[in-house]
């Protein structure tokens, strides 16, 4: 595996020739990403550094390959069930609900949210914003088109979140998938319906440099399995930034095995999977 010194050298070169700053990334997981890029490109570290210096397009490619883009429709159904019955219902009486998906990747959780909002009758009053550093994944998110075969678990997750109520087993509905997306097995496509695709505002944004790029605060920020790639200090800065951009009693939703450590945690009240702004 790459040494700390090789990693620092790479990070310093990138910092000099671009606005990207990976200094506060979690070291071993960052080393792993660079290892993968080296082996995918059949390159040595010295060649990678030379090419990154001289070729801005290659640098953009490398930055995109560093970011991890794993996401699913209704990933961790229990989280979405809790969002439905314990969180979003609290906003029912508001006239507007502002939601930010920070690090939305290819957008599956944005669509999960829109589907849930629609089932709860909150679709019209919601403003849904979504950002990512990687413009390639944002183009996929904007289209709302996914491979079907590869993502067959989506249907199980949909049933768990939309058709079942874990807090009341007698409360079962049967919403058809076609209400929200069309499955074309011959073309191996799962395509979100237009009314969902047209709703969110997708924007390219660098969580570290840009902060909140929308002229509003939020009732709910989802940032799931994004900050795990940052070290503790940078995580803390982002938690502070989220805190400043949440409305009082606004919710922050992290990934299933993420948590908030250190003094910043005292600015939030932890409620199970969720962090509520004090």
């Amino acid at each position: 595996m790459l040494s700390k010194e090789e990693i620092s050298l790479f990070i310093n070169v990138v910092k000099k020739v671009s606005t990207y700053d990976f200094s506060d990334y979690s070291e071993r997981s960052f080393a792993r990403r660079i290892d993968k890029i080296l082996s995918d490109n059949k390159m040595e570290m010295s060649a990678l550094i030379t090419k990154v210096k001289s070729n801005p397009e290659f640098l953009e490619r490398v930055v995109k390959d560093i970011t991890v883009n794993t996401t699913e429709l209704f990933r961790d159904p229990a989280t979405w069930q809790a969002l439905r019955f314990r969180v979003l219902n609290k906003f029912e009486n508001q006239s507007v609900i502002n939601i930010w998906h920070a690090g939305c990747s290819t957008g599956q959780e944005v669509y999960s949210m829109l589907i849930l909002l629609n089932e709860m009758g909150l679709f019209e009053k919601a403003n849904v914003f979504a950002t990512d550093l990687n413009s390639d994944v944002l183009s996929i998110a904007k289209k709302g088109e996914y491979k079907y075969r590869f993502n067959i678990d989506y249907l199980d997750n949909f049933d768990k979140v939309i058709n079942e109520n874990p807090f009341n087993y007698e409360d079962q509905v049967s919403v058809a998938y076609s209400k929200y997306f069309q499955i074309d097995q011959t073309r191996d496509l799962l395509k979100m319906n237009d009314f969902l695709v047209n709703k969110p505002l997708f924007r390219k944004q660098d969580l570290i440099n840009d902060g909140n790029i929308f002229y509003t605060k939020f009732d709910l920020i989802l940032c799931r399995n994004v900050l795990i790639y940052f070290n503790h200090e940078l995580q803390t800065r982002i938690f502070e930034m989220f805190h400043q951009n949440l409305f009082a009693k606004g919710y922050l939703v992290l990934g299933a095995h993420e948590s908030m450590l250190g003094p910043v945690a005292s600015k939030y009240v932890r409620k199970g999977l969720f962090y509520v702004k004090k």
């Binding site: 700390k4 979690s26 070291e27 071993r28 997981s29 792993r32 990403r33 993968k36 991890v68 794993t70 399995n225 795990i228 790639y229 503790h232 990934g255 095995h257 993420e258």
Partner: peptide, 13 residues
Amino acid sequence: YMELGNTFALSTE
């Protein structure tokens, strides 16, 4: 992952 400094780092790659 086990990081220097005795902490875990998780990844969803």
